[in-house]
């Protein structure tokens, strides 16, 4: 599914990723943990094709195709979804209209027929009901006037509607209370299946209680420092990153 080899990337002259190796097989959920400034968000942005970052080396393949050669929208059409740490506001743009346009762009890329407004609303309402989100989320303008928690939930709703093959969640749990946290976890768990993988970037072990990962990776100084099973997250919760980083150095 996702195969990252020796990935290096910088912003301006500043290297952020210093050789990331990571493989996420189909059907698996992997967690990325690490201290602030480790390059976790950068990894999410580089994978989704944000232009502010320059890839200086390495390869990334996604279901066998070279991901780094694609435009952001082509990556989205290929099934990659990034839940933003700070979702962006689009004043005047209705959430339902935004999502329908996005879904139809992806469907077009796959040679599928587009959904009309009625078909789309039916789908979107069903998804928001399943995620226990109020209907009015769809009527509001994209993220405008949303609370921090609502923005994160909106990301999960978008993910549920767009049905990606690989979801990258960039600290979607930050700033959420326990109920909202469960909604996020439920959103990802509902998509689980042999065709779906997720890369969950988080600071806290708490999310992983609800969203149990197959593997946990520790990212520090732009490299994967250690990988392990879900127990690795529990270990980090107790002992922190400092010891592990010192040990590696």
């Amino acid at each position: 599914m996702l195969e990252i080899k020796g990935l290096t990337a910088s912003i301006g002259d500043k290297p952020i990723l210093n050789g990331v190796d990571l493989t996420v097989p189909p059907g698996e959920v992997h967690a990325i943990m690490g201290p602030n400034g480790a390059g976790k968000s950068t990894l999410g942005y580089v994978l989704s094709g944000r232009e502010d970052y320059t890839v200086t080396g390495g390869t990334v393949t996604f279901n066998g195709i070279d991901l780094l050669d694609m435009e952001p929208e082509q990556r989205a059409a290929a099934g990659l979804f990034l839940a933003f740490q700070a979702p962006v506001e689009l004043p005047g743009v209705n959430n339902a209209n935004f999502l329908r346009t996005a879904l139809n762009a992806i469907r077009r890329a796959h040679g599928e027929s587009e959904l009309d407004a009625v078909q789309f609303l039916k789908l979107a309402r069903a998804e928001s009901k399943r995620l226990h989100m109020p209907d009015d989320m769809l009527k509001r303008n994209v993220n405008v006037g949303f609370s921090g928690g609502e923005k994160k939930r909106n990301e999960v709703l978008q993910m549920a509607i767009l049905r990606p093959k690989l979801a990258i969640l960039d600290e979607t749990d930050s700033g959420l209370d326990i109920d909202a946290l469960k909604i996020v976890a439920d959103g990802v768990n509902a998509l689980r299946g042999p065709e779906f993988s997720a890369l969950v970037i988080t600071h806290h072990q708490r999310l992983l209680d609800y969203l149990v990962p197959h593997r946990v990776h520790v990212l520090a100084n732009g490299r994967i420092l250690r990988s392990g099973g879900p127990e690795l997250a529990k270990e980090l919760e107790k002992s922190g990153y400092a010891g592990m980083i010192a040990e590696a150095a």
């Binding site: 232009e51 929208e73 005047g92 767009l162």
Partner: peptide, 25 residues
């Protein structure tokens, strides 16, 4: 730029993204 990237990450072409943002405006 972050508005454009957000839209493109969801699958919209750059032109469609501009159209959507302008129409919203």
């Amino acid at each position: 730029d972050d508005q454009l990237f957000y839209c493109r990450q969801r699958g919209l072409s750059e032109e469609d993204a501009v159209g959507l943002i302008v129409n919203g405006f």
